Amino acid sequence: MSENKGNPNVLVISAHALDFVWRCGGTIAKYSNAGSNVRIINLTLGERGESGDLWNGIENATEEQVKEIRTDEANKASEILGAELKIMDMGDHPLITDKENIIDLVKELREFQPEIILTHFTGDPLNPDHPEAAKLFYKALRAAQVPGVEPDTKILGPVKTFMFEPDQPEFCGFNPDAFIDITDVMEIKEKAMTVSESQKYMFDNYSRRAAYRGYIASRVSGNKEIKNAEAFKRFAPYTGQFFS
């Protein structure tokens, strides 16, 4: 459990360098500002398939050069959001994982002991790296919660998992059932989004998305103060003594 009573440890599993910024940057800032420990794990830097502006804009660009820029972007963005960042550098497009990657992620889960985990939706035909990241995470989550895997480490207890919104949800069958009001931290998210030189076009996309999701969240909740929100899909159904 988190050392901060009432402030859960939050882990974000991001396939590429800045996926976490676009999809849940506001939520990261909300939890960080509230006193939670937030850790982001970048499985890759997106150096091959998500850095088109760099490949097109730098003469004779190299993969190492692109990775260096993406690392800098991810570090700057996570710092703005108030989160710790770890880069696992598994390589993207395609992201292909194996047993060693699963065990590495198991160790991360057990070391950090998150209570809330945010990750990719399980379907995305437009970018197979995203569901592959989700697939890797759920394999690691299962393994982290059974005692026979890495028995010298503390097993992971129950966690609440939420899958964040894909870039083009209409192609992915994504129907959110949870919204986080990020109105009060939208400026922080926008600041984090502006560090990207490799995916500048995403700024407008997710600024508009936040406003649209804010409209939906406001309608659903009746709270007219909600102007910006981020959308998520629960992995497991809600369980409690009463509806919440």
Rank of each mutant, 00 (worst) to 15 (best):
M1R: 15
N9E: 10
N9V: 01
N9I: 06
N9H: 14
V12D: 12
I13N: 08
S14E: 10
F20A: 14
G25Q: 06
G25K: 04
G26Y: 03
T27P: 03
A29I: 02
A34R: 07
S36I: 03
S36G: 07
N37R: 15
N37Q: 14
R39S: 06
R39A: 07
N42F: 01
T44L: 06
T44P: 08
L45K: 12
L45G: 10
L45I: 02
R48W: 08
G49R: 03
E50T: 02
S51F: 05
G52M: 02
G52W: 02
G52H: 07
D53M: 00
N60R: 09
N60K: 11
A61F: 03
E64Q: 15
K67R: 14
E68C: 07
T71R: 12
E73F: 08
N75A: 03
N75D: 04
K76E: 03
A77M: 04
A77H: 01
S78K: 04
I80R: 00
I80N: 01
I80A: 01
I80M: 01
L81W: 00
L81H: 00
L81G: 05
G82P: 03
L85N: 02
K86T: 09
K86P: 00
D92Y: 06
D92S: 07
P94R: 12
L95K: 11
E100Q: 13
N101S: 12
I103P: 13
D104Y: 08
D104R: 15
L105A: 10
L105H: 10
V106Y: 04
K107G: 08
K107M: 12
L109N: 04
E111T: 05
P114N: 14
E115F: 01
I116D: 08
I116P: 05
T119R: 06
G123L: 14
D124A: 07
N127W: 07
D129G: 03
H130P: 05
P131E: 07
P131S: 08
A133K: 06
A133Y: 04
K135L: 05
F137A: 11
A140P: 01
A140C: 03
L141W: 02
L141G: 00
L141E: 12
R142P: 10
R142F: 10
P147T: 10
D152Y: 09
D152A: 15
K154Y: 10
I155A: 08
G157S: 14
P158C: 11
V159E: 06
M163A: 07
D167N: 13
Q168H: 13
Q168G: 07
N175L: 14
D177K: 10
I180V: 15
I180T: 11
I182Q: 00
M186Q: 11
K189W: 02
M193E: 04
S196C: 04
S198E: 01
S198T: 00
K200P: 00
M202D: 09
M202V: 05
Y206T: 01
S207H: 12
R213M: 09
G214E: 00
G214A: 06
G214K: 10
I216L: 07
A217W: 08
S218Q: 11
S221A: 13
G222Q: 11
K224Q: 15
E225F: 14
I226T: 05
A229T: 03
K233L: 12
K233T: 08
R234M: 11
R234V: 07
F235P: 15
T239V: 15
T239S: 13
G240T: 12
F242C: 12
F242Q: 15
F243I: 15
S244G: 15
